[in-house]
Design a protein around this nucleic acid. Structure first.
Length: 274
DNA sequence: ACTATGCCCTGGGTGC
DNA sequence: TGCACCCAGGGCATAG
């Protein structure tokens, strides 16, 4: 599941391969009717053909391919999507949903087992991500901002960490990791966290995202970087999918439960309810 | 305004 | 070996 560190790794991989390149042809394969949100598959193919990619940006988990006609091609990988640069001749991945051929004879493949990934082609990129707040690695995501967003809320703090309006880019892996680092129980009513704990949680979010980015992301299942390789961070996580194993801080067995409708991993000793 | 729930989708894993 | 069932979850819609 690509979250901020994974999408940023892909972005950095693709910048030198894609910037300044012109799209010669796009093919959305049979069964990809839901991929292009703003256009039909045939329209999307036609609109993208001939466009040059000027810049590649990112906001939260969205990749932003800024085109020479002023529009932005907004790509979201959801849980199982990947965008991998290959030769034109490389055989299709088992779950290839679309291919993008470039003017240097290479191609990009959009692979997505569960078909949840989306493409938008828009004049204003905000239209493609209306519920996104500050990117979690931007200065707009500050301790003060987080404090204000959590104040008086009774929802579990984990649910709010997953809310892209509060911290765009945080997903299930890094929410669990940040809560462990900050020693906060995931089901704590957000408004009950004092300023010191909120500050600790904010720092923990940055820490886990940056550590994973340094490892080129986590490959728990389908995530691949822009060249098709796995990330390295999944072997260094503290709690995510480590239920039944010892907490590396205190030795207590990590538990798995359900919070905000998501699988949630935590240390019952380090992260006592407060 | 906030919170909870269900939907989308499909392969992999489990239990019988 | 085969089959039915359940699980994973980001973003969004909807209900309460």
């Amino acid at each position: 599941m690509p979250e901020l560190p994974e999408v940023e790794t892909i972005r950095r991989d693709l910048v030198p391969l894609l910037r300044g390149r012109t799209v010669t042809r796009v093919r959305i394969h049979e069964g990809g009717e839901r991929l292009a949100v703003t256009h039909s598959p045939r329209e999307m193919e036609a609109e993208l053909a001939g466009r040059r990619v000027e810049e590649i940006g990112r906001h939260g988990k969205y990749l932003l391919l800024r085109l020479d006609d002023g529009r932005t091609w907004v790509v979201h990988l959801r849980m199982t999507g990947s965008l991998v640069h290959t030769s034109a001749e490389a055989p299709a991945h088992r779950f290839e949903r679309a291919r993008i051929d470039l003017d240097d004879g290479t191609s990009l493949r959009f692979n997505d087992l569960r078909k949840f990934g989306t493409w938008h082609l828009v004049e204003d990129e905000h239209d493609a991500m209306p519920l996104s707040g500050p990117d979690a690695l931007s200065s707009d995501f500050s301790p003060r901002w987080l404090q204000a967003r959590l104040k008086d809320r009774v929802a579990p703090v984990k649910a709010l960490l997953l809310d892209q309006r509060i911290a765009a880019g945080v997903g299930n892996i890094y929410a669990d990791e940040a809560l462990w680092i900050a020693k906060v129980h995931p089901a704590t009513a957000a408004g009950r966290l004092g300023p010191a704990k909120v500050k600790r949680l904010h720092a923990a979010v940055l820490q886990t995202l940056e550590e994973s980015l340094g490892d080129r992301g986590s490959s728990f299942s389908d995530y691949r970087d822009g060249l098709g390789a796995e990330g390295l961070h999944h072997v260094r996580v503290h709690v995510f999918r480590r239920e039944g194993q010892a907490c590396e801080r205190c030795g207590t067995i990590i538990e798995k439960t359900r919070v905000a409708g998501r699988g949630t991993h935590f240390c019952p000793r380090c992260q006592r309810p407060s």
